[in-house]
Design a binder for these strands. Structure first.
Length: 224
DNA sequence: CTCCCGGGCT
DNA sequence: AGCCCTGGAG
């Protein structure tokens, strides 16, 4: 089973997820990408709502906000000490380098954008790719822990495959198309959080169930 | 490998 | 009470 078949099965099961990432402007996507690291989206939404309620919308708004205030505002998303400092640094960078205009950064080639993003503390592979895919809207595929878990349970790749290797593997099996990249990652997240869960996976309702023998393998291990 | 951390789910 | 969450840095 190749990645495009997986995509189609997931889309069939979950339906249209569209571009999936909430789109209230590119900067909010950047902020959301930082806040959602190792945190649930429901908690991120609380933090994003706090930001809106405090009239914080731009890199300038964040940079001018006292750090302690920012920490309190984003607290629900967890890791708030680190995330506040990183958001502040990133806002400062965008402000000084691009006058706060993300479009100036996004006008560059996606490989350049990626390199620049990765130099910022707090932005690693997945966050950089999420920003490029959903905020800059360029065809950069996003891989995450769900993707790794699903692909390794399907026995398609090894469990500890590197980020870049898994990304390369998938990209070579699907059309280079923005909406497909955006949707596929969204569908993988839906599967990973609702069905192919870390503990107690719901294999009975899995759209990939017939192609996957994760539970069977697990039982074999438990019986031996 | 360990720390960072609140909130939701079980 | 314990586990997990759309990671990243040191």
């Amino acid at each position: 089973m190749n990645s495009f078949e997986i995509y189609k099965l997931l889309k069939n099961h979950f339906g249209e997820v569209g571009s999936w990432w909430p789109k209230d402007g590119p900067f909010e996507i950047v902020v959301g990408a930082i806040l959602t690291q190792q945190s649930t989206w429901t908690n991120v939404e609380k933090a994003l709502k706090n930001l809106k309620d405090s009239n914080i919308f731009t890199p300038n708004d964040i940079f001018e906000l006292p750090l302690e205030d920012l920490k309190q505002i984003i607290k629900p998303s967890g890791f708030f000490n680190q995330k506040a400092e990183r958001l502040r640094k990133i806002s400062e960078y965008l402000l000084y380098t691009y006058g706060g205009e993300l479009e100036l950064l996004f006008a560059k080639d996606k490989n350049i954008i990626r390199k620049e993003l990765l130099e910022l503390k707090g932005i690693g592979n997945e966050t950089a790719d999420s920003i490029i895919l959903y905020a800059a809207e360029k065809t950069e595929f996003v891989v995450d822990s769900y993707t790794k878990r699903i692909y390794s349970r399907l026995k398609i790749v090894e469990e500890n495959i590197k980020y870049e290797d898994l990304k390369e593997y998938i990209v070579n099996e699907i059309p280079e198309n923005l909406l497909i990249y955006q949707e596929f990652h969204g569908l993988i997240v839906l599967l990973g959080k609702n069905i192919c869960k870390k503990k107690n996976p719901n294999c009975n309702n899995c759209p990939l169930g017939s192609k996957c023998n994760f539970l069977i393998n697990k039982k074999d291990i438990n019986h031996s």
